[in-house]
Amino acid sequence: MNHKHVLRLMHQMGCLSTAYNRKTRKYNSYQGQVGKLAPNRLRRRFETDRPYQKLVADVSEFRYGSQLMNVSI
C-alpha cells in the first residue's frame, strides 16, 4: 500500500497523533551547561590606579555551517 493511502485511512479512523506535530514543536539546540565557567575575579571593579593592571577580553565560539569559528574581542 502507498503511504498516502495509509495516511488517508488513519485520518478517516481518527488514529493520527497530534503530540508530535512539526508545527507545534520548535527547534531547541540547548544542551545544558557545556564546559566550565571561569571564576569572576574582576567582579565589575574596573577602576584602577595604574595602566594595564586589569585587562579583559571576551571569547565567543560558534558553529557556522561545518566550520567552527572563534571570535575574540
Rank of each mutant, 00 (worst) to 15 (best):
G14H: 11
V71E: 14
Y30G: 00
K26E: 15
Y64V: 03
F46Y: 13
R50W: 10
K26T: 13
I73Y: 02
S17N: 10
V59N: 03
N21H: 12
P51K: 12
F62S: 15
N70G: 01
H11A: 14
R45G: 08
S66I: 11
V59I: 15
L42T: 04
R45M: 06
E61D: 06
T48I: 02
R63I: 11
G32L: 05
M1G: 12
P39M: 03
N70P: 06
T24P: 01
K54L: 09
R8N: 15
L42G: 00
M1T: 14
Y30T: 08
Q33K: 12
K54I: 08
Y52P: 01
M10N: 13
Q12E: 05
R44L: 01
R43S: 14
E61H: 05
H5W: 00
K26P: 00
N2Y: 04
V56R: 08
P51R: 12
Y27S: 12
G14S: 14
K23I: 02
K4C: 03
D58C: 00
L68M: 15
G35W: 15
N21L: 05
Q12F: 02
R41A: 07
L55G: 01
G14L: 02
G14N: 09
H3I: 11
Q33D: 01
L9Q: 07
K36C: 02
R25A: 15
G65P: 01
R50C: 13
H11G: 06
Q12R: 09
H11E: 08
T24L: 10
N28F: 01
D58A: 01
F46I: 02
K4M: 09
V71G: 05
L7R: 15
G14K: 09
R45L: 14
T18M: 01
N28G: 11
E47W: 06
D49Y: 02
